[in-house]
Design a protein around this nucleic acid. Sequence first.
DNA 1: ATGGTGGATCGTCCA
Length: 261
Amino acid sequence: MKIATWNVNSAKARLPNITEWLTAAAPDVVLFQEIKCETAAFPAAAFVELGYEVHAVGQKAYNGVAILSRQPVTDLLTRLPGDEEEDPQARYVEGTIGGVRIASLYLPNGNPPGDGDSDKYRYKLRWMERLRLHAKGLLEAGAPVVLGGDYNVIPAPEDVYDPVGWRNDALFRQETRLKFQEILALGYTEAFRSLHPGRHPAYTFWDYQAGAWPRNNGLRIDHFLLSPQAADRLMGCEIDKAPRGKEKASDHTPVILEINA
DNA sequence: ATGGTGGATCGTCCA
């Protein structure tokens, strides 16, 4: 099973780029983030035409996630549990595909962090704790679990072009990395780094500004976390840089995971 | 210190 994750930075603005890539890469499951439209405005028909079942969770202007699948999706969850009343942001969708529990998540950015006490940064850390608790519960359910998406977390210094300059950024602060490590400590495996321990730089995001793409000033912030049963089936995990070099590109590029059927 | 870019939306917010 080939599963792709891609922060597309607007599904509508990116539609030609997305359909071109899906046709060539032919993933079985696709996890989108930042679709940036309401659920009803998501261009689902274009993906149905390519053979996918579509499950989008959107909101006006910001955020928004989706799962596309060639096989049927069951037991859909459209919010990350915890603080559901207070959190209207569309950042999480999860379903079961071929016996695998698969989520598309868009973790809050959290900038500016202030001294680690800004409202946005505290929301990020609370969201990460909600994710940790939910990820823990998923392990107890027994099915293999794949949590893919834009984590807005730089796991280690080799995952950012300038670790010193980024040390206080919400994506790289110590508290952010420790909270990410807490999720891994439950028993999850970060697929790309586990398969390619020495491969860096290996980025998934390059800012639109300051020539970040031509200078390769990137970040690795899009990840797949696998439960032990899913990690046992891990066959490959690769970053496809090509879409970032296209006209009208998203600032993120896709990551592709392969697990044994 | 600022601005540099891009999307949604139409004055700003977000990244």
